[in-house]
Amino acid sequence: MGNVLQLLLAGLATGAIYALAAAGFALLWQTARTINFAQGEFVMLPAFFVLAGTEWLGLPLGLAILLALVLALLVLGLLFKRAIVDPLLPQGVLPVVIATIAVGILLKESVKEFYSAEAQPFPSLVAGGTLHLAGAVLSLQDIAVLLVAGLAILAMQLFLTRTRLGRMMQATAQNPEVALVLGIPTRRMVLYTFLLNAALVTLASILISPVYLAKFDNGETLGLIAFIAAIVGGFNQIRGAIAGGFLVGVVDNFGAAYLSSDYRTGILLLLLIAVILLRPHGLWGRAEERTV
């Protein structure tokens, strides 16, 4: 029983990170028809912005995180949109997909060359220590990850559904033509989506790196699992992607423990293929009216 709970909690803590990455992924798709194959690298990068701040510039951690957020907004938000998505989107979805594959390679190799090929320890915002719960052990770190990610998701949902700006973004996502007619500055809304995604990946990066270390190729696995999470949950709905993140985190842990560790990744991929073929809009997504 303790073990089952342990696996469940560990799956949820990791799943929270997947949920953040998957939510950003879904947002980009909804508002900008952008499939970001570099989303994993997007999560990897801000941790190195932080490390560059603390190690190279000697900044205190808080200031370095702020710097990382600003850099992420500029590079992963603004620059990504202007330099990659804007010129390529008119050509269709596929060129953007291919370009983001190249962006992923670019980010990964740049970090390796200009920072380090080795895994780096990353400062934690939370004190060490553990909490025992019905036979399972949770670190304060895990609890912080769950709490912060949960709050961020909640805040994002409230922002998107309760504020004027958020509703305008939602409207842009659901029907850009109508939104434009209604006088919503859709172009600016699209830009906000890219910035929101940059903020989400920065948060995910800062939460996950103290636990799993910062390394240039972390994005490979993380990105793959975040896609799977988004598609399984349904990536035309933010809440679908988020639920998918948690589900995939839990399935991964139980699969590795009770089914097969050799085929650990395979279990998730089979889930992915099954969902795409049987329920292409995802377990909690809505069917798309647009042709995909």
Partner: peptide, 20 residues
Amino acid sequence: DISSEVGQSDFAADVVKIKQ
């Protein structure tokens, strides 16, 4: 006898298996 992947980040399941 537990195998794991290169680049694996989450070892919760592996530790649980050793414990069991």
